[in-house]
Amino acid sequence: MKELIEELIAELRDKNEELSEAKARVWIELLVSDFEASYAKAGYDYQGTAVVEKVVRQWIESYGDKIHEFAGRNPKYAHLLNEQE
């Protein structure tokens, strides 16, 4: 999973030059964690990292270039993403 996280961080940074590596890491970790938690709460069995990877890659492709704008509008994440490097 560690290698996958590193790949996803690199993809997000390629898509969004506004993000430092540290902030891209926070975003990826949040996306993975939230997806896994939501999937579990919905009652689905864990399908492995392939499903997580597919969904997070889709989010990066769809929203990656503007994801940094989201933090200011969502207090759940703002404190994690607005801190100094």
Score class of each variant (00 low, 15 high):
1 M>Q: 06
2 K>A: 06
4 L>Y: 04
4 L>V: 05
5 I>E: 05
6 E>H: 03
6 E>A: 08
8 L>R: 14
10 A>F: 00
12 L>G: 08
13 R>K: 13
14 D>N: 06
14 D>C: 03
15 K>V: 01
15 K>H: 04
16 N>F: 05
16 N>E: 05
17 E>K: 07
18 E>P: 00
18 E>W: 15
19 L>H: 07
21 E>C: 03
21 E>M: 13
21 E>A: 12
21 E>W: 10
25 R>N: 08
26 V>I: 12
26 V>W: 08
26 V>C: 02
27 W>Y: 14
27 W>T: 00
30 L>M: 10
30 L>K: 14
30 L>F: 08
31 L>E: 07
31 L>W: 14
32 V>M: 15
33 S>V: 05
33 S>A: 15
34 D>S: 12
34 D>N: 06
34 D>C: 05
35 F>V: 06
35 F>E: 06
37 A>V: 15
37 A>W: 12
39 Y>R: 15
39 Y>N: 11
39 Y>S: 03
40 A>E: 10
40 A>Y: 07
41 K>Y: 14
41 K>V: 12
42 A>R: 15
42 A>E: 08
43 G>W: 07
44 Y>A: 13
44 Y>Q: 08
44 Y>I: 01
45 D>V: 06
45 D>M: 10
46 Y>R: 12
46 Y>Q: 08
46 Y>A: 09
47 Q>R: 07
49 T>M: 10
51 V>W: 11
51 V>N: 12
51 V>F: 14
52 V>E: 09
54 K>T: 11
55 V>H: 14
56 V>P: 00
57 R>H: 12
57 R>D: 09
58 Q>A: 14
58 Q>N: 10
60 I>F: 13
61 E>Y: 15
61 E>R: 15
61 E>C: 05
64 G>T: 04
64 G>S: 12
65 D>P: 03
65 D>L: 09
65 D>S: 10
66 K>F: 03
66 K>H: 05
67 I>R: 00
68 H>W: 06
68 H>N: 04
68 H>K: 05
69 E>G: 02
69 E>P: 00
69 E>W: 07
71 A>W: 02
73 R>N: 09
74 N>P: 00
74 N>C: 05
75 P>Y: 03
75 P>W: 14
77 Y>D: 00
77 Y>I: 13
81 L>Y: 01
81 L>E: 00
82 N>K: 06
83 E>A: 07
84 Q>G: 02
85 E>V: 09
